[in-house]
Design a protein around this nucleic acid. Sequence first.
DNA 1: CTGTTAGCGCCTTCAT
DNA 2: ATGAAGGCGCTAACAG
Lengths: 342, 342
Amino acid sequence: MPEKVTIYDIAKKLDITAATVSRAFNSNSKISMATRSLVLDTANKMNYKQNKLAQALRNGKSNYVGVIVPRIDSNFFALVIRGIEEELQSKGYQIIICQTHEDEKREIENITTLLNAQVDGILISVSNATKETESIIQQVSSNTIPLIFFDRQLHLEGISSVTINDFEGGYLATEHLIKEGCTKIAHLAGDQSLAIFKSRLNGYKKALSDNKIEYREEYVVHTKSNVEAGKQATEKLLGLHNPPDAIFSSSDFAALGAIQELKEKNIAIPEDFCVVGFGNEPFTKFMELSISSVNQSPKEMGEMAAKVFLEQININTNLKMEKKVVLVPELLIRKSSNRQNN
Amino acid sequence: MPEKVTIYDIAKKLDITAATVSRAFNSNSKISMATRSLVLDTANKMNYKQNKLAQALRNGKSNYVGVIVPRIDSNFFALVIRGIEEELQSKGYQIIICQTHEDEKREIENITTLLNAQVDGILISVSNATKETESIIQQVSSNTIPLIFFDRQLHLEGISSVTINDFEGGYLATEHLIKEGCTKIAHLAGDQSLAIFKSRLNGYKKALSDNKIEYREEYVVHTKSNVEAGKQATEKLLGLHNPPDAIFSSSDFAALGAIQELKEKNIAIPEDFCVVGFGNEPFTKFMELSISSVNQSPKEMGEMAAKVFLEQININTNLKMEKKVVLVPELLIRKSSNRQNN
DNA sequence: CTGTTAGCGCCTTCAT
DNA sequence: ATGAAGGCGCTAACAG
């Protein structure tokens, strides 16, 4: 049976006191090398395991960091998490991952759960922007522990964030399509309640106007970020009086749907129609007709978010700091929009 | 500043004792409805958060469950985790995810970390099968907490597991290729130190012999599970005196590599060559030439693993039980191997 | 139904 | 360099 062995057990065996055993494990204290190694050895032999819970309770520091994402079964978030983990684990932090499934209630529950677990910080990609979520996040950040946004942020004062420049991403993609000779560029826009999608749309608009191309309302279709939605949106676009000759999609999945629809209609890509997606999902480069996309550097984003947390936790907690890190998006030109090298 | 509020703070304010406050939060105890709701209300107003760490320490139960996977940025494992989470979260468990990156040292570290964190159980997909890992796992399982294997197991007595029938998966895939008229079927075999890959190879062999097809050593190429390795292996196969007319790949990524190589050599798929992968990665159905694959039902696997854990934790701990759940693989026939409906 | 007491495992002054 | 004592926040007897 369990028979958990504690520092008292090993103290008794060595005829010393628990305090000494404790000191042996927290090397900083002054303790003779002899007893130190003796303690460590016997602890090992007795199969002793430090109880992090007790440690955390006593120290007021759990070494847990909470990570909240919409979902984990997405290449993007999985890579962000990987980045976070790699950065944090070497510093002795363990991460606890929570998923919201884009549900506001779950999001609030997750925050509560993490606070209950006494995490030392929270890294969050927000799903929702209700007033309630906003006020809870504001309160957590200003009263308790460091909270850092990544990818999807709320614009709240005093809260740090690590994002990519979605505006620039949208701009680059659109500009590229213009350079390829496309003049009637449509946009599959995502959920406009999320700032990232708004920014991509704005980048698209700016690129058009900078290039003296008229913005047409009818060329912007709001779609979910999945294949089927992309297909339907494209069908709609192709049915217009004056159909577009290119699509910049705010999501790779919708871009794939667009391509499927175009193929069904026997429209040649990229000769007669160009497509650019967003997110650099693995399949975009696997396709025979590889899909141009905007890389968001998810792993680097995670690493950066972790670094900001570490800075935050190490400074004097009275001195709140706000750090807004904005990563640069990278346009990956592939077959779906490359007329030169085709 | 933090100013953590405890049950004592709210007890003082209400002029009652901390025990009563505690009881209010653990509804089972006998306590008057009046005080109960009073406590809950004021606790809420004071922004009180239960300290799960203290609770866990006191109760000897953390409500944490550790999950160890090779990596999280894989569709398969992400979905397994999702299944685990959905099953466990409703029961009040929080999961802590660790990645091994297929590194034996990390694997052992992860186990230690989780034990230190006082998890109530460990769900693990093993990366490695060294003697050391084996003995640690054996020891954890028999002396401390429930440990359950999923997908990748070690064959140790008394330890439960949830896996899919990889043998059958290999058999189904190969049999299907035979039915499509292929007679010279090659196999891209994975790391044979992992049982899952051994089983897939064995299923392949059995399907051949059941159909009176001679097994040829030269048709089995051991490759890593990535695109490049699949390409190279296929190049090698095509260079044989008597090259194959089909490939059953133990990995979807290698299958994709195979297809890329075949296309470069202008070999028509599926007319002149059929390919079947394993894992049902998202891209397999996204491709224009969609790839046949074996579905491993990752989400269900995760749910099942969680359920087995819950059973284990709820029975008398003296009574160790071993439960081997084997899920049935599902062959998904797509364009890369479908000669009938093409 | 509520108060009192003790202790989960650990660390950290304060002594010595 | 080590021992003694108290407490982190909570709950579970045991009283009453």
